[in-house]
Amino acid sequence: MTGSAVCQTSRPIPDAGCAIEARSLHVYYGIFRALKDVDLQIERQKITAIIGPSGCGKSTMLRSFNRMNELVPSCRTEGKVMFRNRNIYDSGVDPVEVRRRIGMVFQRPNPFPKSIYENIAWGARINGYRGHLDELVEESLRLAALWEDVRDKLQQSALALSGGQQQRLCIARAIAIRPEIILMDEPASALDPIATLKIEELMRELAERYTFVVVTHNMQQAARVSHQTAFFMMDADRAGYLVEQGPTRDLFTNPRDRRTEDYITGRFG
């Protein structure tokens, strides 16, 4: 297979601080341009929040990072997404391997209709895990702060869990295969405030090891959780573009761009 360059961990990575980077990225759905000329760097082991009004391409941006956009038949991508020194959209790169390394958590909890145990174990199994599954399941559930809740009912259906627990299970499922980056698409939007708080705490803890990219429409959440923030908007043709990007504190207290200031102070949509 030709996807080898991505796996060569031994090679030194030039820009050590950058986990993944979009360069002049354009995304189209059919003839509609959803993203226009985006240059975005995601810092390693940090939480980067993507904010902006609805319809500005936040989710599209996120899904470009692990080639999930390809599952939409009419979708077309131009430009580059550099990961481990390689453009993941190169014809030689295997999307399966990309997704193995860049995990994702979705807006609504979507556990498999299997047991809690199987939800965690399945990803590891298909990816060729050869260790102790029991240990891996326990460790992943502990990392997702779910172990204490479910330790006695691992064989029960995951669908029986509450929404917040299901979402933490999805996080546990994603980290069970040890991705380098975890993409989160409004992970708390379907949850109540208490469950949301738990997810946020979890992200801060896990950020010591993983790189997070989080799409959120909730500015408070972005301000609370993230280290870096990228602000997107859409132009007259409804194509999304990146307005500015920077450390969260700077962006929220001292935005460089007028449009950002309007948005975060609520003067805009």
Partner: peptide, 24 residues
């Protein structure tokens, strides 16, 4: 409650050439 096990990254998943063959 041990939320931060020490050996997180050393997990027995195929890497490098193994991974390439495995996916192939």
């Amino acid at each position: 409650m041990n939320r931060c096990p020490s050996a997180v990254s050393s997990i027995n998943l195929p890497e490098g050439d193994d991974l390439r063959d495995f996916i192939a």
